[in-house]
Structures are given as C-alpha cells and as structure tokens.
Write a protein that binds this DNA or RNA. Structure first.
Lengths: 123, 123
DNA sequence: AGTTTAAGTTAGGATACCCTAATTAGGTAA
DNA sequence: TTACCTAATTAGGGTATCCTAACTTAAACT
C-alpha cells in the first residue's frame, strides 16, 4: 500500500495518541499535526476507505491491523533515522523533528543500511 | 527566500543542466524532473516572477545571482547528505537518490552537524 | 521561400491538502 | 428536561503541482 507522506503522518499520530491516551479524537489529531478539524475529518475518511482504520461519524477511531502495521513501520523508520542523526551529532530534539520529515521519503534500502549501521555503532 | 521543495528541485536541476550542457531548455528540465513541459513552463514563470531566473518566452533560461545562490545551497546540502548516507553504508546511487529528497526538508541546524561529522570522518 | 517538425505555450482540468464559517450531534449541568 | 457547550461535520473555497489536447512559434530541411 503506497501512501502519501501526509497519510503516513496521520497514521503515525493516531497510533501514538492511542498509546498515550487510549482514546483518539479528531481534535487531538488536529492539534498534533497542526491542522484544523475539518482537515482531519477528511483524511480520516480517506484512510477509512482504504481500510486502514475504523471510524463511524463522531465515534471512536481505531487502526485496523494493516493500518497499525503501517504506523509501526513509520515509527520504526523514524527511530533508525533519529539514531543516525544523533550519531552525526545532531541534538536529540532537532533529530526527532527532522526524522519526522525524513522518515517518509527514504527508500527501504537506505533504511535497512541505516539500521545496520546504527546497530553496529551501538555495540 | 522560502521556497517549496519543488521550486528548489527546479532551481537545482536548472543549475546542473547549465553546468553540463550550457544551454537550458524546457524539455531538459521536464525530462530531468519527469514532468511534462507545460508544468515546467509554469514553474519557470513562477521562479522568474520571484527574481530567481531570467527567461523570455521561448528564449534562454539563466539563473540570477540569487537563484544561483539558492541552487548552490541545495547542492551543498545534497553533498553533505550523500556523504553521511555513504558513511552509513548506503550504496552511492541509492544515497544520491535519497539525498535529493532529504536535502529539501532537513533543518539548517542538522545540515551543519552533518557537515561537521562528515568532515571529521573524512580525515 | 515554403514546408515540416520539434519546442514551447495556452486552455482547461484533476488531485491532494488545507482553510473558514456555519450547522449538527452528544453529553453535561441546571 | 431544557439549555448549553464542545466536538465534529458540511459546505464552499483556495493553492500548489501536475496533466492532456490543441495551438503557435521558431528552427531545419528541401
């Protein structure tokens, strides 16, 4: 499933809010991504139609198995990138911020290399 | 001057074509960026209005001083990222490809750190 | 010069994301 | 229960980037 960067952001944020707060609300997603609620409603509906989450109007939002898998994958990429940037001397906060942007665009190949590299450096 | 990622791509490509071929044509930009000529015409006009390049319909394209400065800056970021990825074991071609995507989105702060890191590793 | 071809432009649309303003639904408090 | 408040939705737009089809211009060939 090929998703837009933005769709990935929404999935990841939903996944994170779910872990933190249990219940995921439209307005939480909106504030986390710094967009307005109608924008979220729209994207949530799009993700729902793709079968990545379950949602009924004004109800609860939960990721489907596939949605969660994708969200985890985004997070996984994120962690690898943060570590690489930290190894390069980028301060933690900055690394996290930039990693959120990079995580959507790097190839699987690159991510795998980075993961290996990070693993080696950690030992 | 705050440019979109895409605008930066166009600037960089124009700069590169100029170095390689001397003359920059709409269709060269189009094929380099994998878009259609009308799309290029449109963006070139936008960059012209911003004072980043000089162009008259069906004439030659050349970057202004400011446009070239920006293009160089993009390239500079690019090189630093390629090197970092290569240090992480990413094969050259893949590194280049991904760097083109990353170069637009990382912060100046991160780029500076990466440059330092790369410099250290090279010695 | 006259014709053909390639390059570039114009016109008209599509899509992805985002917004504000106004409306509706759901839950809470009096 | 009624009134109210907040969350969410709908309606109607906007911008950036891209496209195809049709037209124009300029260059190249005969």
């Amino acid at each position: 499933m090929k998703l837009s960067r933005r769709a990935e952001d929404y999935l990841r944020i939903i996944y994170e809010i779910r872990k933190e707060k249990g219940r995921v609300r439209i307005k939480d997603i909106a504030s986390a991504l710094e967009v307005r609620p109608p924008t979220v409603t729209e994207m949530v509906d799009k993700l729902r139609r793709k079968g990545l989450l379950i949602y009924e109007k004004r109800g609860r939002i939960s990721l489907t198995e596939e949605g969660e898998k994708l969200a985890r994958n985004v997070k996984d990429r994120h962690m690898a990138i943060v570590k690489l940037l930290e190894i390069a001397g980028v301060p933690g906060e900055v690394a996290k911020r930039d990693a959120h942007k990079i995580e959507h665009i790097v190839s699987i190949e690159t991510i795998e290399c980075i993961k290996n590299f990070v693993r080696k450096m950690e030992v």
